[in-house]
């Protein structure tokens, strides 16, 4: 079973050490993604989603960022122990990333074809002509006419630019793709097009994917596994079915209560009270307890541990520990 996992994150802790204190961005997360599977990483601003992604690629800006502990096993090897030179080969080659803002992710003075070709040349031993051939193929794959390879980024619209970014990310046939809010900057109709394309390509190429988003709707339509992050921890983790139909963690419940629904008429939303905690000064015990409606005295004292409440459905909440199944 274990060797089926393409990537396995064990107890990852990443902190930013600043003059004003330690920002605990990621606090001991465990994740695994199988070959060809897609995982949705959901959470609000400041939950540590992007830091998790950057930790996998070891791109956390250092200083102030530091990966304190943990293992990231990729194809049986720990990425955190690899020399930088090998990491560089892996980045963009076997593992690649799509960033949130397509407007700034492209170099404005190079043609889009050249930008794709450059990545291809960096990771493969090919000639200039071959790399350009590949660039044209990639553009066609993401639904842009091949002739447009000679155009510059400013000649493309936002949605088209994001397609180019995706083409760059997929140019070297990566095994693992990290997409950090790939559609947040786009309009809904364009978002739908881009998401559908990402899903299709991911299935066609058999790439594993980690999709970072704050939109539960996007997750429902593109992912098989879901991990909900809060204050640097994964509070609930399971299949789409587990998270959406057997919602267990109070925070996940709160998230669903906060979204206005399109099919049901609700007069009042049930938001989560309070604010995101400051990651440089997290609450004691369970970091969600000050906002949790089920919190008891115990929650402020003890840190919950991962509890598997049904096969593959893991919840980090005291309510479920010691076989309590959500009852106190």
């Amino acid at each position: 079973m274990a060797n089926e996992n393409l990537i396995e994150i064990k107890n990852l802790v990443t902190h930013y050490i600043t003059d004003d204190g330690v920002v605990e961005a990621v606090n001991g997360i465990n994740l695994s993604i199988k070959k060809g599977e897609s995982l949705g990483l959901v959470g609000e601003t400041g939950a540590g989603k992007t830091t998790t992604a950057l930790s996998i690629l070891r791109l956390v800006p250092d200083p102030p960022g530091k990966i304190i502990s943990g293992e990231i096993i990729y194809n049986g090897e720990d990425l955190l122990k690899k020399p930088i030179k090998e990491m560089r080969k892996i980045r963009g080659g076997q593992i690649s990333m799509i960033f949130q803002d397509p407007m700034t992710a492209l170099n404005p003075i190079l043609t889009v074809g050249e930008q794709i070709a450059e990545v291809v040349r960096q990771h493969n031993d090919v000639t200039r002509a071959e790399s350009h051939q590949r660039a044209v193929e990639m553009l066609e794959m993401v639904g842009i006419q091949g002739e447009r390879a000679h155009e510059y980024p400013h000649q493309f619209s936002g949605g088209m630019k994001q397609r180019v970014v995706i083409a760059i990310a997929l140019a070297c046939n990566p095994h693992f793709l990290i997409a950090d809010e790939p559609t947040t900057a786009l309009d809904v109709t364009i978002q739908a097009q881009v998401l559908e394309m990402i899903s299709e390509l991911q299935k066609k190429l058999g790439t594993s994917m980690m999709l970072i988003t704050h939109d539960l709707g996007v997750v429902a339509e593109t992912c098989e596994q879901v991990a909900v992050m809060y204050a640097g921890e994964i509070v609930e983790y399971g299949t789409l079915e587990h998270i959406f139909n057997h919602t267990s963690h109070p925070y996940t419940e709160g998230l669903f209560g906060s979204i206005p629904s399109l099919d049901k008429s609700v007069t009042r939303l049930k938001p989560i009270k309070g604010l995101m905690p400051d990651p440089s000064n997290l609450p004691s015990g369970c970091s969600f307890h000050p906002r949790c409606e089920y919190a008891t005295d115990l929650c402020a004292e003890r840190c919950p541990v991962d509890t598997e409440i049904e096969p593959g459905h893991i919840v980090r909440c005291l309510k479920f520990e010691d076989g309590r199944h959500g009852e106190w």
């Binding site: 739908a192 998401l195 429902a220 339509e221 079915e241 959406f244 139909n245 399109l262």
Partner: peptide, 13 residues
């Protein structure tokens, strides 16, 4: 088209 494009947070939707 606009309505069809909205991602719905329910499985099988």
């Amino acid at each position: 088209g606009l309505l069809a494009a909205i991602p719905i947070p329910t499985i099988g939707a």
